[in-house]
């Protein structure tokens, strides 16, 4: 793999590990300890991935991050942080590397970051750099890469992407669009068509209540009423603490075991409608 990595850190462990792991993999690695120095280097040559210990280094690491984000949106910035570092999403940072790390993790993180820097056009990257799920983008890039140029695998990619991020916001659709070479409009049309895909975040546990005819004949309406009352949901379909969200579906194909309620990947069949609360207890 060919790529250029800049390490901005004064921890010799980080610098040495980068040299040890990344050079044999074909990466060009350069290390500096000072923010200004890093900027100077960037004037002559750009790098695909920059590891920054932005809270520790001399001459304002945060400024460097902002500067890179503005000037070199193609570069993927990875923050090197301590274990007890409080996780704050910062604009311009695409991934985190927590110290101490194994050499394997270092390599994985670098490869992921490298994908990210190559994969996406600057316009998307600007949007996604500020997104909520920024820490998942590396994995998303890997998924997209696996199915690159295979438009027929769209459903599979969307399914995996949703499993990863929890929903399919616009920017994610744009990323997939680039990777699979399908117009975003078409991706949106697929996402909005299939009920399993969602563009809104769901709760940690997603409940589906079957409202098909067999289930209705077995009191699914009471079940739904008990469920929404138990979760204190009036108009919204998601609880305030994001623990549960629910939707109504029409026949999940388990009519012989009506009424049916599905929570995440478990399907609860022949539900006793008065005991919904007990079922929910198992999900936290």
């Amino acid at each position: 793999m060919e790529g250029k990595v800049l390490v901005v850190d004064d921890d010799s462990y980080v610098i040495e590990s980068c040299g040890k792991v990344l050079v044999p993999e074909g990466f060009l690695v350069r290390a500096v300890t000072d923010g200004h120095e890093a900027m100077e280097i960037f004037f002559c040559d750009t790098y695909d991935v920059v590891f920054i210990n932005y809270e520790k280094i001399h001459n304002d690491g945060s400024n460097l991050v902002r500067w890179l984000h503005r000037k070199y949106p193609d570069t993927c910035v990875v923050a090197v942080v301590d274990t007890n570092h409080e996780f704050v999403k910062t604009e311009g940072i695409l991934d985190y590397l927590t110290k101490p790390f194994s050499l394997e993790i270092l390599l994985q993180t670098t490869k992921r970051a490298f994908y990210l820097s190559k994969q996406f056009a600057p316009s998307i990257k600007k949007e996604i750099k500020t997104a909520q799920y920024v820490d998942k983008l590396g994995e998303l890039a890997i998924i997209v890469n696996k199915y690159k140029g295979k438009p027929a695998m769209l459903l599979e990619v969307l399914r995996q992407a949703q499993a990863l991020i929890g929903y399919l916001p616009e920017e994610v659709q744009k990323i997939i669009s680039k990777g699979l070479k399908i117009p975003v409009s078409e991706i949106h049309s697929v996402v909005s068509f299939y009920p399993s895909f969602t563009m809104k975040p769901r709760g940690r546990h997603h409940i589906k209540v079957c409202m098909g005819p067999a289930c209705i004949a077995k009191k699914a309406e009471t079940l739904l009423k008990n469920l929404t009352a138990g979760l204190n949901l009036q108009d919204s379909d998601i609880t305030e603490d994001m623990r549960f969200s629910y939707e109504k579906v029409f026949c999940v194909g388990a009519c012989s075991d009506a009424p049916v309620m599905e929570i995440d990947d478990d399907s609860h069949t022949r539900v006793e409608v008065d005991k919904v609360d007990e079922i929910l207890k198992a999900y936290n």
Partner: peptide, 24 residues
Amino acid sequence: FIGAGTFICGEETALIASIEGKRG
């Protein structure tokens, strides 16, 4: 092949469209 829900994808031509990665 794992679909993404919806009853209409039981209809054979819709099912085929879905395998092709399109709207069902």
